[in-house]
């Protein structure tokens, strides 16, 4: 009671001195110039995409000034048979590529995590090659390969190539996930009487699962988005969505292309955010 009265009495006449709290010297993100730099960077990163998305809804062919909201270009893109076919091709390829590359990549990631063998460093370098070499080199080599084997270019050749560049990505993700695995979990399981097989399915596999899901979603996105390698391995009748957009883009900038692009952005972002959520959720659970 007393103390309350006292503080009230002293506070009243000398109203609290309002002053700007000087910032901490390393608190760059609350400094004005840094905020301007960040805002500028974010604008640079987002303006092109947002403009593209916004003008897919613009009721104008010239698509530079806003003429009102419309969905007609989505309708047009949807009814565009060639675009529709390309989309179905892309989905078929991405699905098969994801299934195969996730299976093989997961096995590979697990084997590299688990076993030590002669020449491992070299092998490791080799499976990273598809990630680091320029896409154009891989694209033309696939073209030369299929030509030399007399295999006609089409859905099959695209899928085979997508699997080849997706396997290393899946393996890397799965292996990174396993590097946080404590081998004593397996030892505890064996100690409690489980055999190797039971231990794998009940202990190792559940731990590995978020990595597999993330790897699969990555493989799916990579396949969905790939342009360069697909460009060299596709033939007539096997046009994919990005290839179709490419040919439309070369022709002209139309709201229809914007609508198709927006659809692809939405699909990719949904998959990516799902993958990130799964990863961060399992990371949080593991952290506890």
């Amino acid at each position: 009671m007393n103390a309350k009265l006292e503080t009230a009495a002293t506070a009243a006449p000398t109203a609290p001195i309002k002053r700007r709290e000087r910032r901490n010297p390393l608190d760059y993100s609350s400094m004005r110039w840094m905020q301007i730099v960040l805002a500028g960077n974010f604008m640079f990163l987002y303006f092109p995409i947002l403009a593209l998305v916004a003008f897919s809804f613009n009721d104008s062919k010239r698509n530079i000034t806003w003429q009102g909201f419309t969905l007609k270009y989505y309708e047009k893109a949807w009814n565009n048979i060639a675009l529709h076919d390309a989309f179905m091709n892309t989905m078929t390829i991405a699905t098969i590529s994801t299934l195969v590359s996730t299976t093989f990549g997961t096995m590979l990631g697990l084997a590299i995590y688990r076993y030590k063998f002669p020449g491992k460093a070299l092998y490791d370098g080799w499976i990273h090659l598809p990630i680091v070499i320029p896409e154009i080199c891989m694209g033309v080599s696939m073209l030369a390969f299929f030509a030399a084997m007399n295999i006609p270019l089409g859905i099959f050749t695209i899928t085979v190539s997508h699997i080849a560049f997706s396997i290393p990505f899946v393996a890397v993700v799965v292996r990174a996930r396993m590097s946080g695995f404590d081998p004593s979990f397996e030892e505890a399981s064996t100690d409690l009487g489980a055999n190797q097989w039971q231990t794998f399915w009940n202990v190792t596999f559940p731990y590995m699962m978020p990595g597999v899901v993330a790897g699969a979603l990555l493989a799916f996105t990579l396949s969905l988005d790939d342009f360069v390698i697909t460009f060299f391995t596709s033939g007539p009748g096997s046009t994919t969505f990005p290839i179709k957009i490419y040919s439309m883009v070369r022709f002209s900038v139309t709201p229809e292309v914007n609508a198709a692009s927006t659809a692809l952005i939405v699909i990719t972002l949904t998959l990516t955010i799902t993958a990130m959520t799964i990863q961060s959720r399992s990371a949080r659970r593991q952290g506890k």
Binding site: P16, I17, E21, R22, R23, N24, P25, L26
Partner: peptide
């Protein structure tokens, strides 16, 4: 040291107010 700033109050070092002096 100057790595945090006070919400209220004043610090003087060697007779100099330190409010706006960086570390």
């Amino acid at each position: 040291a100057g790595f945090e700033s006070a919400s209220e109050g004043e610090i003087e070092i060697d007779g100099q107010p330190m409010l706006d002096v960086p570390p």
